[in-house]
Amino acid sequence: MEFAERLAALALKVENQREAIQTEEATKNAFVMPFISTILGYDVFNPLEVVPEFTADVGVKKGEKIDYAILRDGEVQILIECKKSTEPLRIEHASQLFRYFAVTNARIAVLTNGEVYHFYTDLDAPNRMDEKPFLVLDLGDIDETLLPELLKLSKDVFDLDSIVNAAEELKYVGALKRAIAAQFREPSDDWIKFFATRVYEGSYTQKVREQFTSLVAKASKQFLTEQVNDRLKTALGTSAIPVTPTAAAEEAVTSQPAAQADLDRDTEIETTLEELEGYQIVKAIACSEVKPQRVVHRDSKSYFAVLLDDNNRKPIARLHFNGKKQKYLGVFDAEKVETRHPIDSLDEIYAHADAIRGAIAGYLA
């Protein structure tokens, strides 16, 4: 399995098990140890590679422990401190990392709750851990541009010099992207004024600010949608990819067995952005069973099909997103009988992950 696929599989595991994890110890066992072993490639059961409860006396602090130390050639290279998955990460959680960073050879420190990983180094002062991370990995929203840098920390291609050299740019580019994303989600007064004064010729009064608060938010969302649409249209060679609305839930419906289907494609078919996003979720779930290139999609006038090996006799799921009132996810049993489940948001596809994997397992068997 490729690096990105392993990361996607771990992200899905975190998504599915998050609610069941209530303690720091459970977070370590369920999320952090798999990250160290399957993503970074270190043997968590080999004390020459990974030392749990690593101890180093720090000044007057005696016997303090840090959750994990990763070693290479007998030297500590990476320190990892864990918090329980239900807690958001704060710099106050990193006090032990600060102390240990100064007394070991480690150049990389990681603070994590199992879902979000903050990576630190010593850009601001030698042998002193920075207060701001140079890389933030969120398994709930993976930034694929970070994967090459994360790969450099893995056992097989460990390249500390390259990571440290790129850390400053990563730090500020990442911080800027998060700041911009925050403004798109909830524009600040400064952001609103910045744009309003460039398009509105009158005085910037309280009334104008209130008016442009919603206008800036609306324009920002439309701009992002148009940018994504343009990229999809280029990739798909289509002229229009309208975004379909969401709606309320209804009862699940069981339909007839999947037969030849998927053959009624014609020039009137419109592939929507929402269908493609749903396909990516189904594909991410399927990657735990098969290689991603085996999972393909075919659009038709009545539904959007996700297939194994581009074979219409091997349906994995169907996205019924063309209706105006309700969206449905269609999943299949061993007899290829489709059951349609109403969904109000794309995230609800994850609730049917077992059925999606079960369909694939049936074809592989």
Rank of each mutant, 00 (worst) to 15 (best):
R298P: 01
D143T: 07
T254Q: 10
T121P: 05
H320K: 12
E15C: 12
V110H: 03
L79I: 03
P34M: 01
A317D: 01
D73P: 02
G41H: 05
T86D: 05
D57E: 03
H352K: 08
K283E: 00
K233Y: 12
E186S: 14
S300G: 08
D43C: 07
D57M: 01
H341S: 06
A359S: 08
L12N: 14
Y328S: 02
E251T: 09
E250Q: 15
K233N: 12
I70N: 05
S85D: 15
N165Y: 11
V164C: 02
E201P: 03
I349V: 10
A4K: 15
A248P: 13
L12Q: 14
T267Q: 11
Y350P: 03
R6I: 04
P34T: 04
S37W: 06
A9D: 11
A247L: 11
G202Q: 08
G140M: 03
R298L: 00
T38E: 12
P148A: 02
L276A: 05
K61T: 09
S255Y: 15
D124K: 01
E24W: 02
I356E: 06
A261M: 08
K62Q: 08
L139M: 09
L160C: 10
S37Q: 12
D262K: 10
K177T: 06
S37K: 12
K327D: 05
E64A: 04
